[in-house]
C-alpha cells in the first residue's frame, strides 16, 4: 500500500457509462493529503458517480483509480476501512436511536470494552452537537439533525478520508455554518473530499478545488490559484464627472492591456486589465486623479469570487462541448 504517496485519491481516465449514457469521462483527479477538497459541478455533472466509484459501490466502465494507493475495484473493502462517507440522501435504520446508529457503524471498525466504545460515541455526538437527542429514535429527526448524524456516523471510525456528498444541502444557514465548523475542526485529522454546489462554503473552507461539468473535469487547482483567474490582474474603479480624457490617457498606457467602461446613474465603472501590477499600483490612480474634471469614488484590485470563476469555467466548457458535438 502506497501510504507515502502525497495523493490520497488518484484516478486515471476513470469513466462510467450507464446504459449508453456517459456519466463520467476520463477523470484524472488528484486529491492531496490533509486537504479540504471541494468537488464542484452543476447537478448531474457526475459528482455522485465519482464518489460511488471511489468507494467501490459501482465499477468503472474504463480507467482506474486508487485511494490510499489501493485499487478502487480490487481493494474497495480495505479502502472503506479508512473512510467515512456521508451520502447525498442518507438513509439509516429509523428504529435505531442516534446512539445506536453510531454504535452499529463503529462496530464495523472496532471491538473492545463497552465503556471505550461508548466514550467514542459520546465524543462524536458532542462533536456534532447531538448529545441531547442521542437516545431519541431518528425517525423524528429534522433534516439538519439527520445531516449532523450523517457527519457523526461518517466520523465515528476516525477516518483518514472523509467523503461528504453535498453535506450542506437542504440545511438552513445555521445548519450550514455548523457543518462547515465541523469540517474545519476535522481538517487536522483527515483529508476531506466533499461535493457541493454551494460555492460560498467552498470559498470559506476549501484549499483545493475541482470542477466537473457534463462528466468531464474542467478545472483542478488550489483555490487561490483558481481565484487568481489565470493571473489576470484587473483594477476596478468608480468615477464621477467627465471621464473621457482620463479614459483615453489610461487606454494608451503601455502596461494597460484592456479598459472596459460602463455608465450608470452618472457614475462610470472601469475595469482596467493590466500587465504590470507594480506600475498599476504606483501610477494608475495618480494618473487618473491628474484630471481635475473627475472624482474617484472607489478604487480596488478586483478579487474574483469563486462563483464568477465557476460560471466562467462551466460556461466555457459547455460551449466547448457543444462545439465538439457539432464538429464531431
Amino acid at each position: 500500500m502506497d501510504t507515502l504517496s502525497e495523493w490520497v485519491i488518484n484516478t486515471q481516465n476513470l469513466s462510467k457509462t450507464y446504459k449508453g449514457v456517459t456519466a463520467l469521462k476520463s477523470l484524472d483527479l488528484k486529491v492531496p493529503k490533509n486537504s479540504i477538497f471541494g468537488f464542484l459541478g452543476p447537478n448531474g455533472a457526475g459528482k455522485t458517480t465519482t464518489i460511488k466509484l471511489l468507494l467501490g459501490l459501482t465499477r468503472p466502465s474504463s480507467g482506474n483509480g486508487t485511494v490510499f494507493g489501493q485499487d478502487i475495484v480490487q481493494g474497495n473493502v480495505d479502502i472503506r476501512k479508512r473512510i467515512g462517507y456521508l451520502a447525498q440522501n442518507p438513509s439509516y435504520y429509523t428504529y435505531m436511536t442516534a446512539r445506536e446508529t453510531l454504535r452499529f457503524r463503529a462496530r464495523f471498525f472496532y471491538y473492545g470494552p463497552k465503556t471505550s466504545l461508548e466514550e467514542r460515541i459520546n465524543e462524536t455526538l458532542k462533536l456534532v452537537g447531538l448529545e441531547g437527542k442521542a437516545d431519541r429514535p431518528i425517525k423524528g429527526f429534522s433534516g439538519g439533525e439527520l445531516q449532523r448524524l450523517g457527519i457523526a456516523q461518517a466520523q465515528v471510525n476516525y477516518p483518514d478520508l472523509l467523503i461528504l456528498d453535498e453535506p450542506a444541502a437542504n440545511l438552513d444557514p445555521m445548519g450550514r455554518r455548523d457543518v462547515l465548523e465541523v469540517m474545519e475542526r476535522l481538517r487536522k485529522y483527515a483529508t476531506i473530499f466533499y461535493s457541493t454546489h454551494i460555492l460560498d462554503d467552498v470559498q470559506q473552507v476549501s484549499d483545493n478545488v475541482a470542477i466537473l461539468n457534463h462528466g468531464k473535469l474542467v478545472a483542478q487547482a488550489p483555490l487561490e490559484e483558481l481565484l487568481s483567474n489565470g493571473d489576470k490582474i484587473i483594477y476596478s474603479l468608480s468615477l464621477e464627472g467627465n471621464t473621457q480624457n482620463a479614459a483615453e490617457r489610461v487606454a494608451h498606457l503601455s502596461w494597460v492591456a484592456n479598459l472596459q467602461t460602463t455608465h450608470k446613474n452618472g457614475t462610470a465603472s472601469w475595469q482596467v486589465t493590466v500587465s504590470d501590477d507594480r506600475a498599476a499600483k504606483a501610477d494608475l490612480l495618480r494618473i487618473i486623479l491628474g484630471d481635475e474634471n473627475l472624482a474617484v469614488t472607489d478604487f480596488r484590485r478586483k478579487k474574483y469570487e469563486l462563483e464568477e470563476v465557476f460560471l466562467q469555467i462551466v460556461e466555457a466548457s459547455g460551449q466547448d462541448l457543444v462545439k465538439g458535438a457539432h464538429d464531431g
Binding site: Y110, Y111, G112
Partner: peptide, 24 residues
C-alpha cells in the same frame, strides 16, 4: 481525537468483512 488504546480494529477480511456486526 486520538485512537482509544482500549479499542481494537476489527480484522475481518474478504467475504467475511462486516459479518459479525451484521449478524448481531
Amino acid at each position: 481525537m486520538a485512537e482509544s488504546a482500549l479499542l481494537y480494529r476489527v480484522h475481518e477480511r474478504g467475504w467475511r468483512s462486516g459479518m459479525t456486526n451484521l449478524l448481531r
